[in-house]
Amino acid sequence: MLSYSFDFSFLMTTWPAFMRGAWQTILLAGSSIAIGFIVALVCAIIRSGKNKFASGLVGAYVEVIRNTPLLVQIFIVYFGLPSLGLKLSAETAAVIALVINTGAYGSEIIRAGIESIAKGQLEAAECLGLNKFQVYWHIILIPAVERVYPALSSQFVLLMLSSSITSQISAQELTAEANLIQSETFRSFEVYLIVAAIYLALSVLFRVVLWAIGEVAFVRRRKLRT
C-alpha cells in the first residue's frame, strides 16, 4: 500500500540553498562551456589542419575522452593528479574535467562544420583577394561554427546536466547542495523532485541564452532572415 505522504514544508527554510546550488551550477557549467568552446575550436582547427602529427594527437585525445565515462575522468583529475603532485580544489578539478570533456565533443562537432564548407567558397574568396587569415576566419571558421551551432548548443546543455556528476567529488553545485539538504531533512524523494524541476528550468534557460548568443554572434544569419 502506498501510505507515503508528501511533505514539501522543508522548502520554507531550504529554498535559498536550492537557489545557491542553482547559481553555482550556472557558474560551473557556464565557465566550463566558455573555456571548453575555445579548447574545442583550437582542437578542431588543428584536427582539420595539415600537420599530421598534431592532428593525430588531437584525434587520440578526442577518441579517449569520448569513449570513457565523465565520472572516471573526474576521478582521474581529482584523485589521480594529486598523486602526481598536482593538488586541485574540487571546483577547479570539476571545471578542468568538464572542459576536457566538452573540448573533445565540441571539436568533433566543429570539425564536421569545417569539413562541410564547399571548396567553391574558398576559391571565390581567393578570387576576391582575401588573404589566408581572412579566408580562414570569414569563409571557413565563422560559417562552420554558425552551421553547427544548434548541435553545439545541445552539447552544451548536456554538459550542464552532466555537471551534476561533479557532486561526487563534493564540488559546490546543485546536486551537492541537494545531497546536503536531503541528509538534513530526510525527504530524499521530494528534494530530488525539486532538483529535477530546477535542472529542467536550467536547461530551458541555457537553451534560451545560447540561442540569444547565436542571434547576436551570427550577424549574417540574422540579416538573411529579415
Binding site: S162, S163, T175, Y192
Partner: peptide, 23 residues
C-alpha cells in the same frame, strides 16, 4: 523533453528513493 532536461544522476536518485517509498 523532461528526461533529456534532467541529469541522469537525478533520475537515478528519484528511482532509488522513489522505489523505496513504495515500501
Amino acid at each position: 523533453q523532461i528526461i533529456q532536461g534532467t541529469p541522469l544522476l537525478v533520475v537515478l536518485f528519484l528511482a532509488y528513493f522513489g522505489l523505496s517509498i513504495l515500501g
